[in-house]
Design a protein around this nucleic acid. Sequence first.
DNA 1: TTTTCCTATGATATATTATAACATTACTCG
DNA 2: CGAGTAATGTTATAATATATCATAGGAAAA
Lengths: 165, 165
Amino acid sequence: MTEKKVSARDCLFKRDEGSFKNSMEIIEQYCREHGLQLTPVRKKVFEFLLDEPRGLGAYKILDLLRLSGFNSQPPAAYRALDFLVENGFAHKVESQNLFVACTKPGSHHSPVFMICKKCDRVSETQSTSLDANISDSLRLSGFEIEHAVIEAEGICSVCAGSGSS
Amino acid sequence: MTEKKVSARDCLFKRDEGSFKNSMEIIEQYCREHGLQLTPVRKKVFEFLLDEPRGLGAYKILDLLRLSGFNSQPPAAYRALDFLVENGFAHKVESQNLFVACTKPGSHHSPVFMICKKCDRVSETQSTSLDANISDSLRLSGFEIEHAVIEAEGICSVCAGSGSS
DNA sequence: TTTTCCTATGATATATTATAACATTACTCG
DNA sequence: CGAGTAATGTTATAATATATCATAGGAAAA
């Protein structure tokens, strides 16, 4: 009756300041160690992603860059996103054309996403067993997987538990 | 050295005329039984999809419609695709913005795709065990799946076996 | 039969997502 | 300094998708 969407404050997946800082520090260190340039635009885009558990579209990111004083054009946003995705700091959610910060930055893996239709929150699992299952199944058919897109849409535990509708 | 791509003739996933006809007959019957209108545009689009194991983009389908004498605009193609997808006759491959005929038309399910980077062929598996694995894993986290997008990119058995590169 | 209603299609415009191509800057390294 | 590379700026356009309103066509009600 009151609200359609669960507010960010109530979310199970909420991240506190500590984990924000932690993710940023992790990728800063990773970049130092691997000779990667975490330029201002790239860093800013990663901040945006960390700050938005629902993920962000490329053009929303472009807007945010402009609000932050960057006078950017679309390629700037896509280039920053390419950098973040290539280096395992972010992922693209293919079924939503949306980008999210990686919860395990720097570890190259095939993520599994759960996208809540109610609160729009995107959460990533590190389901190694899941990856293994899929690999095994498909390997039986002789298919060699290089990358897997696994995205589940449905209702997250918070929204399911909040006795609405 | 000779060819980069495996030709359609050599493909393990090749469908013969018999199975084409079969798929069409299946959806014709399904539509009759469920009061669905398999109009000329919709039928034609389904034919295109049956005929292209690599899948087709919406605008490619639009081109084909025009070549077939339909004077169509983009919404016509998307409407036909919506109809086919909603009724389980086709799927969208999200990671490629591409549509494919369903190999089990009419059975509503969450398909698993294998997309070969070499021959571009898209094949669908009916991996119920796979679905089950994913459901179980995510259910543990309290997430209720309504739909799952599972798309593996890699090298198909035909291309892997054809001793190239 | 005429009217009504519903479904599908036609038609126009525009929104959204993404990239190509070339110019410029900025930093490193020799 | 000068050359080379990586990043960014800039302009234009490609590719994908939808909103909106108009029209047609057939089935069902009156």
